[in-house]
């Protein structure tokens, strides 16, 4: 009887399954199967033609001992740390200013400030490519006018990560600023008025009121920014091609080169799983904090 009633319920809801079918069919073909297949591939050596050879853990062993992977991991971590320590504070500051009651033409300000996030990484990178050029670029002009030495930003292995980081900050601050601003709107303004009456300055209000009240949103920003940074591809691809001498190459670029230039499909899948593992750890951390927070709220 029970099976029958389940069958009946399934049949009654058949039109609803049809509504969600497009997503789940595409999910199976372009996400689930690729994920499983990629896991299988990561234990094989395969060039895309001919037979696959099972190599066990060899790809993973190569990965942890490869100097280039350590370099690209280091580069990616560099982008991540620089992004987190700059983008979140800058966005928080700008969002607080935009949230101030005295600001006029708030919509106009918001519209203009969000502009960088509309265009592609590639387009932004091409403009930055010219701005940071050591012969024609304006950045060096600005630097020399401050009395400093012009630098070969894009052709130096020492400096190449800096223009990329600045590009990332320029394009992502508008996005995080807006997320934080949408959180600030929910903070009761009376808190600030009371604080101002008691003589608290902007910095004290930020530390004592704003940050504790929107900590969930700041944490959300931290997590999404982390995921975004570990998936960096277009930024170095368009700005420096990962060079000079791989000095600005990211993990996903390393995956791309191994898979689609050297045709080491097995090894590239291993890199893909390493990336997924890193992000899994981040997500698990996120989940743990969220569960903990929920428990605190319940008690």
């Amino acid at each position: 009887m029970k099976g029958n009633s389940l069958g009946m319920r399934l049949w009654k809801a058949r039109i609803v399954y049809l509504f969600i079918a497009p997503y789940f069919i595409l999910f199976i073909f372009f996400q689930l199967i690729p994920l499983v297949w990629s896991l299988v591939l990561s234990f094989h050596s395969w060039s895309g033609l001919g037979e696959m050879t099972f190599v066990g853990m060899d790809n993973y062993r190569t990965l942890v001992t490869d100097d280039l992977f350590q370099l690209v991991l280091g580069n990616t971590v560099f982008y991540w740390i620089v992004s987190v320590i700059t983008i979140i504070p800058i966005s928080l500051m700008l969002a607080s200013i935009i949230n101030s009651p005295w600001l006029k033409r708030r919509n106009f300000v918001q519209t203009m400030m969000f502009l960088p996030y509309i265009i592609s990484w590639v387009a932004a990178a091409l403009v930055f490519r010219m701005l940071f050029d050591h012969e024609v670029g304006l950045v060096n002009i600005a630097i020399s006018s401050l009395g400093l030495q012009p630098q070969p930003w894009l052709v130096s292995t020492r400096l190449s990560k800096i223009p990329i980081s600045i590009l990332i900050i320029w394009r992502l601050v508008p996005w995080y600023m807006l997320i934080i601003y949408s959180g600030l709107k929910s903070v009761d303004y009376q808190f600030y008025e009371a604080a101002v009456l008691e003589g608290a300055n902007a910095f004290q209000r930020m530390v004592k009121i704003t940050i504790p009240l929107i900590s969930t949103i700041l944490f959300f920003c931290f997590i999404t920014l982390t995921i975004e940074c570990f998936r960096i591809f277009a930024q170095p691809h368009a700005l420096t091609r990962g060079g000079p001498g791989n000095s600005s190459m990211s993990i996903v670029q390393y995956l791309y080169i191994n898979g689609f230039e050297f045709f080491k499909l097995g090894y590239a899948s291993t890199v893909g799983y390493a990336l997924a593992l890193i992000l899994l750890i981040v997500s698990a951390f996120q989940l743990r904090v969220m569960i903990k927070r929920n428990k605190e709220m319940n008690f």
Binding site: V16, L35, L41, L255, G259, L275, L279
Partner: peptide, 30 residues
Amino acid sequence: TFPGKEILFVIMIATMMVPEETGVIPVFII
């Protein structure tokens, strides 16, 4: 409301966590 709604929804949300780059080689082959 339909049988399996919750689990399907959770699966859907969970996949947002997986980077698309991980499966990019098989996607290319497909």
